[in-house]
Amino acid sequence: MPQTMKKCGEGSFELSNPVRIASAACAAGPFEKRGLLKEAFDLAFDDPYLGEKTWEKAEGSLARRIAAKLLEKSGLAPADVDFFFAGDLERQCMASTLGLLPYEIPYFGLYGACSTFTEGLILASALLDGGFGRRAGVITTSHFSTAEREYRTPLIYGKQRQPSAQHTVTGGGAVLLTALPAPEGVPYAAVTRFRVGRMRDMGITDAGNMGAAMAPAAAETLTGFLEDFGKTGDDYDLILTGDLGEVGHRILKELTHGMGFPLEGVLDDCGRLLYKEEQDAHAGGSGAGCSSLVFASSVLPRLLRGELGKVLFASTGALLSATSLLQGESIPGICHVVEVEAFSGKERA
């Protein structure tokens, strides 16, 4: 047994020392650039190909440029980073491979569908808290066109989508986590606690309603976390799920209410924060890059500005493949949660 057991309650964990989020970077495509968070992106591209010849290379380029921006904003060289966790929605996570290949940073490829960003935050925080390194990066991306190719139909194929369908985000975000102490007096945000989600399959088979497939897992992860630490929704300024979209968000509100945790006042969803009504993105954004883009462009800056104090950040994933869908299998959902807290930087002194 280690000296201090980090597991709390039935299945949540508390880090011995908060793992600081030293910097973040993000990039988005043209559709996102016209949306609600357009001012907040580090990079925004008008060309969805990013100057590449194929969509897959475009997403790889997206990941590469986000990683470069992250290193630039952190003032670090690739050799200063001990691990990089990366994930996307392409088969065998090729965008992450192409994106991080040039940097020669020790690399973990992750797949957790759209929950990957929080999955990476948890793994990176745990490694750093365990003393395995000083700095770790986490990056996730998605691209509308690679996702359409992989899961749906060719891009210029004409079709009608249902109101509960979501729009895969072209974009992504990255953070650099560090176990090193913060410079004195400078506000920062840090990961303090987490809960690893369990897969939940409630029998949803409609890929046009992935919010409904993911909401049960989100409800169980969030209420489990709150129960393990004896918290309620009132203890947080914001509880932000990954990409349930409008429909899944409404289901989650009802589910958590029914489980004795009314979260109506604090609950929101990354998929609802990216697009304007007139963009006709149906139920909102989705994709592995959705929650990382919103975290890097909106959540972290608000924590650093002091607008938010304590946040639960819970990316959600629908665990399906193009094959499983065609074979009529139902879609299990997953949701991981991290608690992120803002510190003034004066606590230690």
């Binding site: 029998g203 949803i204 309603n209 489990g224 489980m259």
Partner: peptide, 27 residues
């Protein structure tokens, strides 16, 4: 915390919340 809903109960809840396609307009 485990959800105490059967798949059938959940399917009914989802159907109640998910907006239907605007059939008349679509047609």
């Amino acid at each position: 915390m485990k959800l105490s809903l059967s798949r059938e109960e959940y399917a009914r809840k989802v159907a109640g919340i998910t907006p239907a396609s605007p059939l008349a307009r679509d047609m």
